[in-house]
């Protein structure tokens, strides 16, 4: 290959760009594609949904901000939603319109993605990150509040954020966004620019979403709290009532079910760790797996059932390790191995 020839016909425009999901505007370089672009671009018959022509882009820019936002998010409004003046324009046959546009400006035939991150898996999230990173870049020098004076902000959960963007976003990725938001939130509010405030407000938890949370489990008519737990392949269900510390597992005494003292202790660990051993009676049913799985599944089930009685114990239970389900399962066997890791002994040919 020879040295690449200089790109001709490229124009870089500094324009006001509408972000797909954010009501604030930002200055971004917009590249308009020229005829020197590869052939397949020119021959694109049907433009992808999120692509807009330069013509459309300029038209969009002239619309009021709400309309532009809607356009960016949902594309053109259906006819019945448009005002009659626009509707009459829309009714023109598209081919003709296109041809007119082409006549006026040959570059209008070129299509550009509305978002520079169009080709990423999660363009909206990438846009958001770029946006927030820009805000941080521009405003990071502003004075910060001391930690204790920072206004309290409850961000959207990862699930809510995914729902909001309409993209599947792993919680680990959202941690990065939250850390940026937290940093933005530390800027002294009096000095904060409107765009920062808007970005923060957009990411706050929706109060309506909270109401739709499932109701916390309650004690039933017999005074029982119910919980389920799993570990390895074992599944335990536990009923906990106020009592004197008696334990029945599969209708048997705990000493009959768990021969090892260690297993008994790990099954009753939630009660031990919180000092509630003599206050509740436990009735548990465990299935599947072996004794270790039984014991630790029972622990989680008992912890959840106790939380029904005393929800305030949750942090203590979490610290005691009784909330999180241990995700470890048996490692799969691999081809060429005797077991998961074991390899056959080396044999001389």
């Amino acid at each position: 290959m020879a040295t690449p020839r200089p790109l001709q016909g490229f124009r870089t425009l500094q324009r006001q760009c509408i972000h797909a999901h954010h009501p604030h505007t930002q200055t971004l370089p917009i590249r308009l594609l020229s005829t020197t672009q590869p052939r397949q671009w020119r021959r694109a018959v049907r433009p992808p949904k999120d692509f807009i022509s330069y013509e459309k882009y300029t038209e969009m820019m002239n619309k009021p901000i709400e309309e532009a936002m809607h356009f960016a998010m949902h594309g053109p409004r259906p006819l019945w939603q448009q005002n009659p003046k626009d509707a009459s324009q829309q009714q023109q046959p598209p081919e003709e319109q296109e041809s007119i546009a082409t006549k006026q400006d040959p570059t209008a035939a070129r299509l550009v993605p509305a978002s520079p991150s169009y080709f990423s898996v999660t363009p909206r999230m990438v846009d958001d990150i770029v946006h927030l990173a820009g805000l941080l870049r521009r405003h990071a020098n502003l004075p910060k509040l001391p930690r204790e004076y920072v206004p309290k902000a409850i961000w959207k959960s990862a699930g809510e954020y995914s729902l909001w963007l309409g993209e599947k976003i792993p919680p680990s990725r959202y941690i990065r966004i939250k850390s940026m938001l937290t940093r933005l939130n530390m800027i002294v509010p009096e000095l904060r620019r409107q765009e920062v405030t808007d970005a923060i407000n957009a990411h706050l938890k929706d109060p309506e979403m909270e109401e739709s949370k499932p109701e916390p489990p309650a004690i039933d008519e017999w005074g029982r709290g119910y919980g389920e737990g799993r570990r390895k392949t074992a599944k335990a269900t536990a009923y906990v009532v106020e009592g004197s510390g008696e334990v029945l597992i599969n209708e048997r005494r705990i000493t009959d079910v768990f021969g090892r003292v260690k297993d008994r202790e790990s099954a009753l660990w939630p009660l031990m760790a919180t000092g509630r051993m003599g206050r509740y009676n436990v009735f548990a049913v465990v299935k599947g797996g072996g004794t270790t799985g039984w014991a630790e599944a029972t622990a989680i089930a008992v912890a959840k059932a106790v939380l029904v009685h005393e929800p305030g114990l949750k942090p203590a239970m979490r610290r005691a390790g009784c909330i999180r389900r241990d995700p470890r399962m048996v490692e799969r066997k691999k081809p060429g191995h005797d077991k998961a890791r074991k390899k056959p002994a080396w044999v001389a040919r």
Binding site: G245, E246, V247, T255, L268, L271, M277, G278
Partner: peptide
């Protein structure tokens, strides 16, 4: 203490002396 006795009592299957000795 009450707490210790209660814990051992439950772990020993409701105060079984043999199990108490073990625990």
């Amino acid at each position: 203490s009450e707490r210790f006795v209660g814990e051992q009592w439950s772990v020993a299957g409701g105060g079984l002396p043999g199990e108490l000795e073990r625990t």
